[in-house]
Each structure stands twice: as C-alpha cells, then as structure tokens.
Design a protein around this nucleic acid. Structure first.
Length: 586
RNA sequence: GCGCCCGUAGCUCAGCUGGAUAGAGUACCGCCCUCCGAAGGCGGGGGUCACAGGUUCGAAUCCUGUCGGGCGCGCCA
C-alpha cells in the first residue's frame, strides 16, 4: 500500500524533471507517512516542502504540480494539498478490502516480505560466560536478540543465530578451581573457600558429579592446595592473586588430563543448563561457537599475524599491543600478555574476523550496555584487518531492574544473589517475560514490574492482547451451536458493508502491519511490535463492545467475521514474532 | 576528568527519516453486563517535552552548552 503510493510520487517527480520543473540531478528519498489524523487522509507526503528549494518555488505551488503529475490509481479516491504543503492521500475502501483479503489469504505469511532480498545476517546474542546459570539481565538480551533475529527473518534476510561460548580464559579457570575445591570438601577436606570463587549451588552439583565418577581418587590435602598461596581478601590480601595461585596449584596437582576433565565437567553441565533454559524460553540457535576452538584452530594466532604484517602491532613492556588508537579508539590494547597468553580481546578479534570471512552481508552483536566501551576496539580491529567495520552493528541492551511489591529487587553478583532467568520464567511465565523484555526500546533502562507481569488483569498488556485473540476464537467457536458458519467468500464479497468507524479503524491498523514489521526489523526495534499489538487489541475490544458479530444478517455477519478473523490472524502473527503464544482460550 | 546512553502527564513509557492540535497504559473521578468472555468498553481532569541557546518554511526529534540519573574507562572476561 505504502510502496504503491511511493511509486506514484516518484513517477510524478520524474515527470516534473522531464518538464524542467525540477532539476534532473536530484537524489531524494520520498517521505511518506501515515497521517496521525484521519482528516488528513491516510498517507501524507512532505515531498513538496522538501523539494521547494531546488524547484525554486513555493511548497504549495510545487505540491499542485506534483499532484497534477501523479498517475491515476484505483486505490486513491482523493488527493488534497493541506497545511504548509502536505500532499494528502485518501485511500479507497476497496484498497482496505484488498488488504483484508490479503491477510486471510496469506494467513501466517501476512507481514512477511522480501525487503532483505535473501541477504545474510548473523546475529550473536546472549553469549553469557558459562560460569553459572543465566540471570534476568541475560534474559533481556535473549528476548531482544531472538526477536530482532526473527524480525529480520520475517522481512527476507537469511538469519544465522549464534551463541559465542566463552569456554576459555581465566573466568573458566576460576570455575574449574571452584568445582575442585567443592569436590575436596565433599571428600572431607576442610578448607576456606576463596572470596573470588563461584559460590552458587550449581558448583556443588558439578563437584558431586566429579565425586561420583572418581570417588576420592583426585583428592589432595587442602593444606597442599593452599600452601604458600598469597592471602585472600578477608585476611587482608588480594583475592585476585589468591585465586590465581589456587588455579595454578589445581592445574599442577590434578595434571593436564584431570584438570581438563574437571574444567569440562563444569563447562558442559552449565552450558547444558543454559541451552535448556533458552530452549524453554523459545530462544533457538543455529550455532554455539566455541572460543576455545579459535585458539585450537590457530585463528587467534593468524589474526595477530595479520595485524603484525600490516604494522598495527607493537611490543611494549613485554606485551604485544594493537594500535587501535589509529582507528579512533581511546587507547591501544594488549592482545598478548607479558606471560604469553593472548587476551580475551585477541579471541574477539579472531572471532569477528572469522564472522566476516564466513561471508555474512551483515553482522549483529547484541551486548549488555556495560560493554559499550568495547565497541570501538572491535571495530578498530576489523578496520585494521582490512575488513568493512560498517558491516558490524553492535546493539547495546540496557539493564533491567526488577520490582516486586513496589520495591527494587536487590541483586549483586558478588554475593551470588541474583534472580535467575529460570526463576523469572517460573514466576511470571514465558509469555509475560518475553513480552515485557521487548516492551521497551533497548537503549532504555527498564523497570520490570514482576507483580504486573504476573497479574492476570487488565493492567497486564500481555493478557490484554492475548484476551483479544481468545475472544475472537471464542466467537468463532460458538457458531456451530447457533447453526452458523463463516463463509469466507460471502464475507469477502460484502466487505463494503463494513462502514462503522470501528471497522474502519481496525482495517487501517491491519493494513499498517507489514510496514510496521519492516520498520521494526530494519531499526531493530521489537518494541514497536509490542505497542502495535496493544493498539490493535484495543481497536478490537472497542469494536467488540460496540457491535455484534453473530447476527442474523448473513452478508454483514460474514463480512464482520472476515474482519475479526483477519484481526485474529495479525495478532497471532505479531505475538509469534515476539515469541509469545496466542491462546484460543485462557 | 574523559566517553557512551537516558531525561516527555503523579508513575511506567510511545512519539516512525525533522511535520499538522504531543499520545498510550496506570493511578484518580463518573458511567456501561435481560447483549458473542467485564481479563472488556465509554467519558473526565492531568504537560514549561530537564534547562538555555542555535540550525529552518517547521524542532520532543538535529547541533552546542548546562543540570540531573545510569554505565564504562585492566596485560579481567
């Protein structure tokens, strides 16, 4: 619908150009918007105002010329020039009837398009360290990333969803060490657990598995582990130095093989937990990309090599530095430490290099906003490697703060007191969780009201929308008892009988849906879908209260049934995009 | 100190690439079920779009500065 009008305008511009009313070398985008006020028609274009300068004419004069040059269309009944020079389009009822038929015909495909033309895009999201269960902060990234991916898929991109598994590095060593210390505890050793270790219950679970497999075979006296280690924080020492020493001691005492086994046991069980959690949340991946594999396949090495060859690496204080300041970063960054170990950043360079080498047209990273300072250096690295950093979009998701009983739910990673995603899902349900997470635009801090999400009341937007869907389903269910059935052909032939203002409003909103999905996909804004659905549900509830559907007049009845059937369809399609169910009864 | 994000109704938030009289929900007040699901609908009050400049036909939207809130500034990941 919008594309059609856009096309008409662009033809009009060409006509004026050929007449010399407009310069030939214009590069303009056609501005065309839905009107806010129905009095201004259905669509409005500001084209005449934008072009009045190059045309050297008054906006309204130019508007008249443009309108005169517009080709005829059976979808348009009237074109007005209004205000400072808006061109207002009034669409014919037939245009709306056509979209209604389209909704019914295309069913769950209505709203999909080929905007992306099959271009490939990789979306990496969540990618939480497998050192513990997902918490509510990850939940927002999960819901957001999954929806952005689904939106892009809906408008014709080939989407590859990926989770980057940080299965290497110091945090994982801390986990492995934590597991081993809990194992020793289970063996009967008495020890003081390090301040910087992972204290969650899940660590005990992994330790128990280790103990089941090996009994006391891996046991070493606690005294031996802790001998000569630097003091821990509670004893006035440095918790980082303390844990590092413990890691080293564990590696030495366990030996490569058993250390690796302990490490992998923790990794696998936690990763499995994360996988299951996300699956249950309706978040699916095509790939779980291992950070460790980067090193094992020499990708980190070759990335650094490439940077060296192009002169972007220098040595200072025994470490290797990437001169990211050449590409706009605040300071240069270490890629290989003094101790010879490559940094997390080095892995990330290799990972992003690999992403682009895989040939994606676009690459999207969804990160927590606390990582925003990291963006320039990753882009710098891609530029230094000669890749197109513009292909990478980093979407930053702000934190979500939980409220229960009107009070902020306190969380701190330090004490291990955080609400897990699983707990949240159990408390409010998957539907409410998915919906609430994407209700706000991602750069907006979010107050997540648990009581509201859980409440089965009109306050809760999820139920409000689902209720509209269930109500329609309920109406359709009751037809057989009244000896009625929906005749879709008769419905379509009588759409002209839908003359009530409620029906008009509903049809307008249904026709907006494809435009909305496209905009939401391109701008990575799932919240637009959430707001739209609320709006659409409102249109329906209003209609429902004002008019009857199951009436004697067959022609009108079938027309109305077609309308609400189409409404049901669009609500279902929209909810599907958000990962929310559309129940027939509730 | 520097950088990024945010500041719109009492509260939570929309506001599309700069467009016409700034909108929802909630809370508050008043109405609507012999009627397809009242988990609903209708009406009402409520605004210096943080503040001050600038850009232009036009600014909540873009630019600069100030104030307020969040986050980040490791040879951690």
């Amino acid at each position: 619908m919008k594309h059609h009008l856009s096309q008409l305008l662009s033809e009009a511009v060409q006509t004026l150009q050929s007449h010399g009313d407009l310069p030939a070398d214009l590069s303009i985008k056609i501005g065309l918007e839905r009107t806010r006020d129905r009095k201004h028609g259905d669509f409005a274009s500001n084209l005449a105002m934008v072009l009045c300068k190059p045309a050297q004419s008054k906006p309204r004069d130019l508007a008249e010329k443009l309108v005169a040059a517009l080709p005829d269309s059976d979808q348009v009944t009237k074109i007005d020039i209004a205000g400072p020079g808006f061109i207002n389009f009034f669409l014919s009822p037939a245009a709306y009837h056509a979209t209604l038929s389209q909704v019914l015909k295309q069913a769950d495909r209505y709203g999909r398009s080929n905007l992306g033309q099959g271009k490939s895009v990789q979306v990496e999201f969540v990618s939480a360290n497998p050192t513990g269960p997902l918490h509510v902060g990850h939940g927002r990234g999960a819901a957001y990333g999954a929806t952005v991916a689904d939106l892009l898929a809906a408008v014709g991109y080939r989407v590859h969803r990926e989770y980057y598994v940080n299965d290497a590095g110091r945090q994982m060593d801390i986990l492995a060490t934590s597991v081993y210390l809990r194992y020793l505890d289970l063996c009967g050793e008495e020890l003081v657990f390090p301040a910087n270790g992972y204290k969650g219950d899940y660590v005990w679970d992994v330790a128990a598995s280790l103990h089941r497999e090996h009994g006391d075979d891996l046991r070493h006296p606690a005294a031996e582990i802790f001998a000569d280690t630097p003091a821990d924080e509670p004893n006035g020492g440095d918790k980082e130095l303390h844990i590092d020493a413990l890691i080293q001691r564990c590696k030495d005492l366990l030996g490569t093989e058993h250390y690796r086994e302990t490490f992998d046991l923790g990794l696998d069980s936690i990763l499995e937990n994360i996988r299951r959690d996300l699956e249950e949340f309706g978040v699916h991946y095509d790939d779980w990309f291992s950070e460790r594999s980067l090193t094992e396949n020499g990708l980190v090495e070759s990335a650094i090599q490439r940077l060296k060859e192009t002169g972007h690496i220098y040595e200072k204080k025994g470490a290797l530095w990437f001169r990211s300041t050449d590409f706009g970063d605040e300071k240069d960054r270490v890629v290989v430490r003094e101790n010879g170990q490559s940094t997390y950043f080095a892995s990330d360079i290799a990972y992003h290099m690999n992403k682009l080498e895989r040939g994606y047209d676009r690459v999207i990273d969804v990160w927590g906003a606390d990582h925003h300072g990291y963006v320039p250096r990753v882009k710098a690295a891609l530029s230094a490697l000669g890749d197109d950093a513009g292909k990478l979009d980093v979407l930053l998701v702000q934190f979500a703060v939980l409220y229960r009983g009107g009070k902020k739910v306190q969380m701190s990673t330090r004490s291990g007191e955080f609400v897990t995603l699983r707990e949240l899902r159990q408390e409010v349900g998957n539907d409410a969780a998915r919906f609430f997470y994407v209700m706000r635009k991602c750069e907006q801090h979010m107050d997540f009201d648990l009581d509201l999400a859980r409440s089965q009341s009109n306050d809760n937007p999820v139920y409000y929308i689902q209720y509209a869907h269930a109500r329609i389903a309920s109406v359709l269910r009751q037809m057989p008892d009244r000896g009625m059935q929906w005749d879709s052909n008769m419905g379509e032939q009588n759409l002209h009988q839908l003359t009530e203002s409620h029906e008009d409003a509903l049809m307008v909103n249904l026709s907006r849906y494809p435009e909305l999905v496209e905009a939401a996909a391109i701008n990575h804004e799932p919240h637009a879908i959430a707001h739209y659905l609320r709006d659409l549900a409102n249109d329906f509830h209003t209609y429902y209260n004002a008019h009857q559907f199951l009436i004697e007049d067959q022609a009108l009845r079938n027309a109305r049934l077609s309308l609400i059937q189409a409404t049901r369809q669009v609500i279902a399609n929209g909810l599907k995009l958000l990962g929310v169910s559309a129940p027939d009864s509730m």
